[in-house]
């Protein structure tokens, strides 16, 4: 499902950061652990196609995304990859429902209000359909971000420090939801974190 081969990235004027090859099967959940500054986010961005590897390539569902031209990569990402970031960002002029519709529109998938409603209610957010993002609590915002990441049924779900800003309870809930949603679509889930609270939760771990 997800294969990386000899990937490395060199920021301007710095030493290259090299990563060991990763190989994840469909419907498996992974935790990538590492301290701050060891390149966790760089790795995740390269896997998500947000950052081009300086060397090596990333293969997702049989497609070498490192070789895709920009437009096709955007399209591929929209349909096949869902990303949850440490801090959730939304289009501020749109409400929750419209933000999710935007995700469908940008990925080139048909508008589906029913899907939006069912995802939101599975995340206990059914009543927040018409709320503006900045009216939601941190935990709620992170749950909407999860909804947005899974709305298009991606094959790969990436999460970058999804719990670091949350308390224990919210953190546990977010991880549970991520795992449930990933399992529901048989997607590969890869969580990048330095949050030691999650360590025992995942049998598949990659230490950077």
């Amino acid at each position: 499902m997800l294969k990386t081969k000899d990937i490395s990235h060199t920021y301007k004027g710095q030493q290259p950061i090299r990563f060991n090859d990763i190989h994840c099967q469909p419907d498996t959940h992974w935790l990538v652990l590492g301290n701050s500054g060891c390149g966790k986010t760089t790795l995740l961005h390269m896997i998500a196609g947000l950052l081009k590897p300086t060397t090596g390539n990333v293969e997702i569902a049989g497609t070498n995304i490192s070789a895709l031209p920009s437009n096709q990569l955007d399209h591929f990402r929209g349909q096949k990859i869902g990303v949850v970031f440490q801090k959730p960002h939304f289009v501020r002029s749109l409400n929750v429902e419209a933000n999710l519709m935007l995700a469908q529109y940008l990925a080139g998938i048909k508008k589906d209000k029913k899907r939006i409603e069912s995802i939101l209610s599975s995340l206990n957010l059914g009543h927040k359909l018409k709320s503006m993002p900045n009216e939601l609590s941190q935990g709620e915002q992170q749950r909407v971000a999860i909804a947005r990441a899974v709305i298009n049924g991606p094959k790969l779900i990436l999460a970058d420090e999804p719990t670091s800003a949350l308390d224990d309870e919210n953190s546990r809930e977010v991880i549970n939801l991520l795992e449930t949603q990933a399992s529901a679509q048989q997607a590969t889930l890869l969580i990048v974190t330095h949050d030691q609270r999650l360590k025992d939760h995942f049998p598949n771990r990659i230490q950077l």
């Binding site: 998500a48 947000l50 920009s70 437009n71 955007d74 399209h75 990402r77 929209g78 349909q79 990303v83 960002h89 939304f90 289009v91 501020r92 935007l102 995700a103 940008l106 990925a107 080139g108 947005r148």
Partner: peptide, 18 residues
């Protein structure tokens, strides 16, 4: 002010052209 949401739109599959 909107640089994050523009980046997010790219993540969601929006192309540069969009």
């Amino acid at each position: 002010e909107r640089r994050y949401e523009l980046a997010i739109m790219r993540v969601m599959g929006g192309s540069r052209g969009k």
